[in-house]
Computed example of a mutant assay.
Amino acid sequence: MDMTTQHITLGAINMEAENPVELAAFWGTVTSAVPSVGGGTVYLPPAGPGGFAMFFRPMAGPRLERQAAHLDLTVPWGSRQAEVDRLLSLGATYKWDVLDEVPHVQWTTLADPEGNLFCVAEHPPAS
């Protein structure tokens, strides 16, 4: 068995949506990517190097009461509030801030238009 270390990358984040086209449009605006609709699904390509892709498909069943995973988006130090304000203007909903819990990160938790939680985090510069 070859034990060579391989570089793993994120291919895409897959999400079920009540309205895949509308949810992909929201995330396309968030990430500056252009959605590609195919049948009942939508692919959102990475918006450049270091970006991530997303894939939206119709809901297969009822939405779970508890969200087991969420996206943590990172912005440069000092720009979190401006980015949160931008995302709110696009249709995100404010949930809460965590500003003093840990010294190496501050974040705001938001929900996308279908209620999926995500965070916008900033890390202070290294001393």
Rank of each mutant, 00 (worst) to 15 (best):
A12I: 00
A12H: 09
A24H: 05
N19I: 01
L23E: 03
A25Y: 06
V30H: 13
V37M: 09
A33S: 14
L23Q: 03
P35F: 08
E16A: 13
A33P: 02
W27F: 10
V42D: 02
S32P: 02
A17M: 04
S36K: 14
V34I: 12
F26L: 05
V30S: 10
P20E: 06
T29C: 14
V42T: 03
V37A: 08
S36H: 03
V21Y: 10
G40P: 00
A12Q: 01
V37C: 13
G11H: 12
V30E: 05
G40H: 09
G28E: 05
T31Y: 14
G39I: 00
N19C: 09
E22K: 15
T29K: 15
T29P: 00
L23H: 03
T31V: 11
V21G: 10
A24M: 04
G39F: 01
E22D: 09
V30F: 09
G28N: 09
A25H: 05
T31Q: 13
T29N: 15
E18M: 11
A25K: 14
W27M: 13
T31S: 15
T29I: 09
A24Q: 10
V42M: 09
A33D: 02
G11Y: 10
A24F: 06
W27D: 01
W27P: 05
M15V: 07
M15P: 01
G38A: 10
V42G: 08
G40S: 06
P20N: 11
G11A: 13
A24N: 07
V34W: 12
L23I: 04
L23V: 06
L10E: 00
A25C: 07
F26S: 07
N14E: 03
E16C: 12
A17F: 04
V34T: 14
S36R: 11
S36W: 00
A25Q: 11
P35K: 15
G38Q: 11
G40I: 00
I13R: 05
T41F: 12
L23S: 03
L10G: 01
G11F: 06
F26I: 04
G39C: 09
S36C: 03
A24T: 01
P20I: 02
T41Q: 09
G38R: 15
N14T: 04
V21L: 15
V21A: 12
N14M: 04
F26P: 01
T31A: 14
P20A: 11
G28W: 10
L10A: 08
L23A: 10
L10F: 03
V42C: 13
G11N: 12
T41N: 06
A25D: 06
G28D: 02
P35E: 03
A25L: 11
A17S: 05
T29F: 11
M15L: 15
T29S: 15
A12E: 00
A17H: 02
L23G: 02
V21S: 09
G38P: 01
G38Y: 03
P20W: 06
F26Y: 05
V37R: 14
L23T: 01
T41E: 07
S36D: 00
P35R: 14
V42E: 02
N14D: 01
A25W: 04
G28V: 03
V30L: 13
E18A: 15
A12Y: 02
A33M: 08
V34R: 15
G39H: 04
G40R: 07
F26C: 04
G11W: 08
G40E: 00
S36A: 10
V42Y: 08
S32F: 12
P20T: 05
E18H: 15
N14W: 06
G39S: 05
P35N: 07
L23F: 00
N19G: 02
E16S: 11
